[in-house]
Amino acid sequence: MGKAKPAKHTSAELAAKAKAATQNAGGGKAGLADRKGGAVGHAKYKCHICGQAAPDLKTMQIHHDAKHPKLPWEPEKCENLHALTGGVTTQGVAVRGSIKKK
């Protein structure tokens, strides 16, 4: 047996590694824009009446029924923000800044 210590990983350490691999946490302006979802954010649809953003049409319909009950629901009038920007909202996951060591 060698002198090297066998690697033992705790469940918290493994969870932290998995989170770091799938989370946008890059520093600076590029990382900030990416964490916010790029040019349009992570929301896909925008209400044509008040401008409220929603991730899908079902959520937009819930918003419409709650906030604009007197107006008819017309999903074709909701703006698809992802289509306006070419379908790309973020640069990708696993964008992470440096880990400060003490």
Score class of each variant (00 low, 15 high):
Ala53Thr: 04
Ser98Ala: 15
Asp34Leu: 01
Gly86Arg: 00
Thr59Gly: 11
Ala94Phe: 00
Leu81Phe: 04
Gly28Ile: 01
Val95Lys: 15
Trp73Asn: 12
Ile99Asn: 14
Leu71Lys: 12
His64Lys: 01
Glu79Tyr: 06
Leu32His: 08
Arg96Tyr: 03
Gly37Trp: 05
Ala53Glu: 14
Thr10Asp: 11
Lys58Asp: 09
Gly2Trp: 06
His68Thr: 07
Leu32Met: 07
Gly26His: 04
Lys58Ile: 07
Lys5Arg: 09
Arg96Gly: 09
Ala12Ile: 04
Cys47Ser: 10
Gly86Gln: 06
Val40Pro: 03
Cys50Ser: 08
Cys47Asn: 01
Gly86Val: 00
Leu57Glu: 06
Gly28Thr: 07
Glu79Ala: 13
Lys70Met: 06
Gly26Phe: 00
Gly92Val: 04
Ala43Phe: 04
Arg35Thr: 04
Gly38Pro: 03
Gly2Asn: 14
Ala20Lys: 15
Leu32Ala: 15
Ala83Met: 06
Thr90Ser: 07
Glu76Leu: 05
Pro75Leu: 01
His63Asp: 06
Asp65Ala: 11
Asp56Tyr: 04
His42Gln: 05
Ala39Phe: 02
Ala54His: 06
Ser11Asp: 13
Val95Phe: 11
Lys77Ala: 12
Cys47Tyr: 07
Leu57His: 01
Asn80Trp: 07
Lys77Leu: 13
Met1Trp: 03
His42Asp: 11
Lys77Cys: 03
Thr59Met: 08
Asn80Glu: 10
Pro6Gly: 09
Lys36Ile: 04
Gln91Trp: 06
Leu84Trp: 00
Arg96Thr: 11
His63Asn: 10
Ala12Ser: 13
Glu13Gln: 11
Gly38Met: 06
Leu32Tyr: 07
Tyr45Thr: 01
Gly41Ala: 00
Lys8Arg: 14
Ala7Asn: 07
Ser11Ala: 12
Met60Trp: 02
His42Tyr: 15
Ala16Glu: 08
Ala94Leu: 01
Ala21Gln: 11
Lys101Met: 14
Arg96Trp: 03
Lys67Glu: 14
